[in-house]
Write a protein that binds this DNA or RNA. Structure first.
Ligand SMILES: [Zn+2]
Ligand SMILES: [Zn+2]
Lengths: 363, 363
DNA sequence: ACACAAGTAC
DNA sequence: GTACTTGTGT
């Protein structure tokens, strides 16, 4: 993932708030993987919402320096602005979008470090760390507005899509509905509450990689578009901030991925890449030939006498009858031509069509 | 307002339903103007939802024949499709949009008989009748979808704008919120309930004209746009049906006004007028002056354009494809012949058949 | 009023 | 994938 080039000021405000900790205690007590987190949280003295700077902690057999993202600023209060600065950290935290075939409903632009996809489309994100400690680690994903004039606003869903009857909200718990990012991981914890004017994020315990691989894949999904009306994103660009955290909420790594959720991911990606290259004045002589010829090979079987069920809507009673008549003629011709040598199947078919023609199903 | 030349069959379904009558009884008991209505309603024997045809009633000193819009059909059940046929009736009921200066937030197109305005913009409508009786009369305004394939759907607000926190809903009663048409008249009665799957309308007692004038002006306002997402209008055109009714809900007059609620009324009016003149110029090479108001596409029972679902078994993939092709040809022919005036249903049908032809359901 | 943005139909 | 529709910012 490319370096984040944002010039937004960032503050070390990634720590869990008291409310979030309480919420975790309530929510995840039945999740084995995070029991340790619960234990530590319940004895956690660092509850005032501030990071301990340059705090030394022991992870496995390795002493690491836990540093905040920016050392040049110590705000007196917790900032609403979340840091989005790239910070691989002691475990060389990496976040990758696997390059996808054109078949996928999402598309990634390396030059923009931006993923484009439609709403409700699941997409994979690969997480990689090195020298993994014994302690439980978590990944938190927080959507934030990219533009500085909105980065202090929290990203909520629009009224429409948050509605309980929305198809995307079937069997979705009340507190999950307000989140625009969902994770398919069943241990996912949805943090924050719009009603309490809190920033929303989703956290998952970092799973162990499948043997033979170093990365862990998680599926995510956005359930609102950038174009959703206020109080939704209202056409403001966003990015997803992935933070690697320990159970106390200390940030051990951070990566950012710009995101656009829209109806035409491909078109919009090309448009943004074009204006990006225009802006940076790096004329790319890169031609792309879009090969779109996809002719399906017509396989011809030896004997074309299998039965196919057609369900089609026809406007107009007369027209529907015409279709029936045509079907009858077609089958009758075949029946006559085949005679007793394979014509039985056509005879059955004729009977079926006959019934449709005789009985007034077309009311 | 131009004459409506609809050829659509219409049903006498404008009568007040029992629920509506009950609702009126509950709602307007404190409104002096309609006390008579309440009284009569409470003793009203015509509560079965059907009109009495050619019923003789005495209005003031004049005997009038109360006729339904169309006498040629007596449907056995109440239709969901509301008549939109022009019917001046015994009192020569007129509905006028006063021509406006360019300063107003709304514009009226005489050739289209259509008003264009932004959402939440109040606009005036003038009502005129002749030989006004002593009895109380009411004006009911009902929004309906213009296209036949949607005319049986009821017009509701979108989730977004129906939300209690919406600015347009400040100090607005619960049952009013769901209506897209509001009237500034304090005696307005909002009829129907979305929760009960009823059609919504607003009714007002017809005031007495100011001395020296013959018409009564009322201010209305639409609080959703045509472009509002489902379950809102979802870009489907609508019209407002104004019915003059007596206290029993008998229709004594009817006028229709097409409506478009959008962000750029002027632009969209010019665009629609342009394509209207394009459409009317081409088919008739010679005629120019006579046609001043267009035919309106409406649902009609004596037109053979309902959709029928056929489920038939065909032997042979090729034959199945032939049936599909034939169906496609049949619908395509209809579509071409109907054009934009009623061809939409065939287009939808074609899409369905297309999908069957393109996707290898025939495996 | 114009040009752009972004969802949708074809 | 193209073109149109329609809201929004300037
Ligand atoms: Zn949304
Ligand atoms: Zn709306």
């Amino acid at each position: 993932m490319n370096k984040c080039e944002s010039e937004v000021m960032s503050f070390p405000s990634d720590i869990l708030s008291q409310e979030e900790q309480d919420e975790i205690l309530r929510e995840i007590s039945d999740i084995p993987d995070v029991n340790e987190m619960v234990h530590i949280l319940s004895n956690n003295s660092n509850i005032n919402g501030e990071n301990d700077f340059n705090e030394e902690k022991e992870y496995k057999d390795k002493i690491v320096i836990v540093v905040p993202a920016n050392e040049h600023s110590i705000p007196p209060i917790i900032s609403n602005i979340l840091s989005n600065e790239e910070y691989p950290g002691p475990f060389e935290f990496e976040v990758d979008i696997c390059p996808n075939g054109s078949k996928n409903p999402w598309v990634y632009s390396p030059p923009l470090n931006k993923i484009f996809m439609d709403m409700n489309s699941p997409f994979p994100v690969d997480f990689k760390i090195k020298n993994r400690p014994q302690n439980s680690l978590f990944i938190r994903v927080t959507p934030v507005y990219s533009l500085p004039q909105h980065s202090q606003d929290f990203v909520y869903r629009c009224i429409n899509h948050e509605h309980p009857m929305e198809t995307s909200n079937r069997n979705v718990k009340e507190n999950v509905r307000q989140h625009i990012i969902r994770c398919s991981n069943s241990s996912a914890i949805y943090l924050g509450d719009k009603e309490k004017s809190q920033r929303l994020s989703v956290a998952i315990p970092l799973s162990l990689p499948q043997s033979g691989t170093e990365s862990v894949r998680e599926m995510f999904q956005f359930v609102c578009k950038n174009s959703c009306p206020t109080p939704g994103m209202n056409r403001r660009p966003i990015e997803a901030i992935f933070t690697l955290e320990d159970v106390s909420g200390h940030v051990l790594g951070r990566q950012t991925l710009r995101v656009r959720i829209c109806s035409c991911p491909k078109r919009d990606k090309e448009k943004e890449e074009k204006e990006h290259s225009d802006n940076t004045r790096l004329p790319r002589g890169k031609k792309r030939k879009v090969e779109k010829s996809e002719k399906k090979p017509v396989a011809s079987s030896d004997v074309d006498n299998k039965e196919y069920k057609l369900t089609l809507n026809i406007v107009g009673k007369h027209n529907a009858q015409q279709v029936l008549k045509y079907s009858h003629d077609l089958m009758a011709g075949e029946y006559i031509r085949h005679g007793s040598n394979g014509g039985e199947v056509y005879k059955n078919c004729l009977n079926g069509i006959n019934n449709l023609m005789i009985f007034p199903t077309l009311k």
